[in-house]
Structure formats: structure tokens, C-alpha cells
Amino acid sequence: MPKNKGKGGKNRKRGKNEADDEKRELVFKEDGQEYAQVLRMLGNGRCEAMCLDNNGTKRLCHIRGKLHKKVWIASGDIILVGLRDYQDDKADVILKFMPDEARLLKAYGELPDNMKLYVDCGGGGDDDEEDDIDCIEFENDDIDKI
């Protein structure tokens, strides 16, 4: 039987993301970059995002290898994309903003005021907003039946 030369298997690799709790410096867009909100995930390391430039174009975004399987992106997330000079309808995901970072960007005026950030199914929101959110609420009796 061969001698083990490595330091562990896939469970060791799974637990490497321990430094996520640290506060990181807020990154603003530069030229050639744009803020976007993910509309839907397409699979194969791609997503469709609505860019927040002046015309609000939908772009097919490629999740780069540094983020792939390390940073999980879902629909509704705020991301920073790098625009391509040669393809206007495609972009590359550079960074995913955490919810508190997205709120800071909105407070600084980088994101438009009418944009909804991280729509979730948590209670405590206004009753007017329940029509916009597709959530399933269970009664206690319904949970017991499942």
C-alpha cells in the first residue's frame, strides 16, 4: 500500500474558508468595471446579471476561477464585473459584495436608491413588500405533516 504524502483529502480542502469573518476593505469600481446585480445563475460558472451602468444592460457573466467553488453567488447578489472591450454583452465576475458592503455602497451613492438589496424571506419587512417576494410560509401544523 502506498505511503500517504499529502496532508489530507477533500474534507481538509473543504474547511479552508475560515477567514471569511474578517472585515475587508470596501472595493469601489474603477474604469472598465461596473456594479451588477445577479438575475439568475446559469450553471457552468456563468450567471446573468443586470449591470448598473447608464443603460442597464443584461450581461452574461463568467465567474473566474479564483471565485469558482470558493465564493457562492446566488440571484440577487451584488457583484463587481470587469467589462470586456471586445464583447459588450459579456463580462467577468471580479468580486462578490457581502450584504453589509452592499448597504455601504448604497449609502455612499454608488448604487441607485431604488434598487433592492438581498431580498430574503425573513419576517419583519413591510406588508407592502410581500407581493414582490415569492416566499412560502408554513404553519406549525404544515411542518408536522412533512
Rank of each mutant, 00 (worst) to 15 (best):
R14S: 13
G15R: 12
G15Q: 14
G15H: 11
K16H: 11
N17A: 12
A19S: 08
D20N: 09
D21Y: 13
K23C: 10
K23S: 14
E25F: 01
L26K: 04
L26M: 02
K29R: 12
K29T: 03
E30V: 05
E30T: 14
E30A: 13
Q33N: 07
Q33G: 04
E34P: 01
E34V: 13
Y35D: 06
Y35C: 05
A36I: 05
A36M: 06
R40H: 07
M41I: 12
G43W: 01
G43D: 11
N44C: 00
G45Y: 01
E48R: 11
A49F: 01
M50W: 03
D53W: 01
D53H: 02
T57C: 06
T57L: 11
T57W: 02
K58D: 15
K58H: 15
R59Q: 10
L60A: 13
L60F: 06
C61R: 08
C61H: 07
H62Y: 08
I63C: 09
R64E: 03
G65T: 04
K66H: 13
L67D: 08
L67K: 11
L67W: 09
H68G: 01
K70C: 12
V71K: 09
V71L: 00
I73Q: 07
I73W: 04
I73V: 15
S75Q: 15
S75A: 15
S75Y: 04
G76P: 08
D77Q: 00
I78Q: 10
I78C: 07
I78V: 15
I79G: 07
I79Q: 04
L80C: 08
V81A: 10
V81P: 01
V81L: 05
G82F: 03
L83G: 01
L83K: 13
R84Q: 12
D85H: 08
Y86T: 13
D88R: 10
K90W: 00
V93P: 12
V93I: 15
L95A: 02
K96Y: 00
F97N: 03
M98P: 00
D100S: 11
E101P: 08
E101H: 07
L104N: 11
L105R: 09
L105A: 06
L105W: 06
K106P: 00
A107V: 06
E110K: 14
P112N: 09
N114A: 05
M115L: 15
K116Q: 04
K116M: 03
L117I: 05
Y118V: 02
D120R: 07
C121R: 03
G123W: 06
G123P: 05
G123L: 13
G124F: 06
G125V: 04
G125R: 15
D126T: 14
D126H: 13
